[in-house]
Nucleic acid binder design. Structure first.
Lengths: 199, 199
DNA sequence: TTTTATTCTGATCAGTTGATCAGTTTTATT
DNA sequence: AATAAAACTGATCAACTGATCAGAATAAAA
């Protein structure tokens, strides 16, 4: 008995999700239609409905995929560091770098998070446990352990974590040309200023 | 010669804009249609097209209206303060308070800023000089003058302004029940931590 | 080979959208 | 009162939406 008889489904799902990300980046959520995604993925609209139960299901799966990518990228950098200070600096640097390197991913994630709503009409970006929340838990864990080990002084972990997340998010609004000085120094200066706050 | 013969137009425009804000809050941008706005404003879709050149024009005007409201609210609080420290604290407190008091306004503003795009397909939230930018200029002015007067130490004004804006923005994601301790302390703790950064 | 399960296509459908416009009502001017 | 300008209505339209589904193609199993 083999429970993996047909493997095409998973590959096709990812292909559709990647097409969705590109369409979201190019057109924004309001102009993202199943037919645009289908032609970007070089298949038919019917196939999307075959692999996903509907547009909302596709968007949910795309959001999970994007959150997973970001989490993996940041976690890998954080785990290389020994000290909690090093982990925190890596978290901030990687968070900002990810938004620059994988810009289309972050753009697509924003488009979904600000437009898809739960059945109760609550926007995703205001749902307590959305997929990105895992990253927030990692950040709060670093801050808490850093306090316990006396690397950091006393402060409200939740509030400082939010300040850090806000600074990372806003890096998206910076000009993304490689040589623009505003982008170049931002990451480093954010880390400097956060250190002033917690050391 | 009277250049204000027909004044109804302005009043009707504001009525339509206010209806748009309510529909945006209740349904989100993707489910906001001219017919929903029309019935919320108790008029016809034709009238909206009469006063605005199209849906996009209505959204642009709504965004301007919302940015103006926020700016007025915050500026009034800031101008009561003498010291730059006082002005900065007032800016942060008012910014967070506005998002709680005028929640529907901020919700609508987010819906528009993350969905309307310029003719060049650039999302508003990434446009350099969007209407909210005026508030950012006010914030940077406070920080710069505070440095000149030696109230604040040396730091990169642009970066610190972004950190502050990020912290204010994220207050929208906090639970908004009046007695929730997470909201209660947030404003005060943000101010404390920002002070550690700049003093 | 035959059979069965999976994958896929593209035409089709009902519903909604933003916009238009001929015609009506209201308001101001002469 | 007569006229003109402004404000307004609601039916109508083409364009597009997400979803459906009969049937075709492909792959695996028997």
């Amino acid at each position: 008995m083999n429970n993996k008889q047909y493997l095409i489904a998973d590959a096709r799902k990812e292909q559709i999700i990647k097409a969705a990300i590109e369409v979201l980046r190019d057109y924004g959520y309001i102009n993202t239609s199943l037919s645009k995604i289908a032609s970007q993925a070089k298949t038919s609209t019917g196939l999307i409905s075959y692999h996903f139960s509907g547009k909302e299901d596709l968007m949910n799966n795309t959001l999970l995929y994007l959150a997973e990518q970001e989490k993996a990228f940041i976690k890998e950098k954080v785990e290389k560091e020994q000290s909690y200070t090093g982990q925190l600096m890596a978290f901030i640097e990687a968070g900002i770098a990810y938004r620059s390197i994988k810009r289309e991913n972050t753009t697509a994630l924003i488009e979904i998070a600000f437009n898809v709503r739960t059945p109760n009409n609550v926007p995703y970006f205001r749902v307590e446990m959305h997929p990105e929340e895992e990253l927030n838990l990692l950040l709060e864990e670093i801050l808490t352990k850093g306090q316990t080990s006396k690397e950091f002084q006393a402060f409200d972990v939740t509030v400082v974590a939010m300040i850090i997340r806000g600074a990372i998010s806003l890096s998206m609004s910076l000009p993304q040309e490689e040589n623009d000085p505003r982008l170049a120094g931002y990451s480093e200066k954010v880390r400097e200023n956060i250190l002033k706050m917690i050391k």
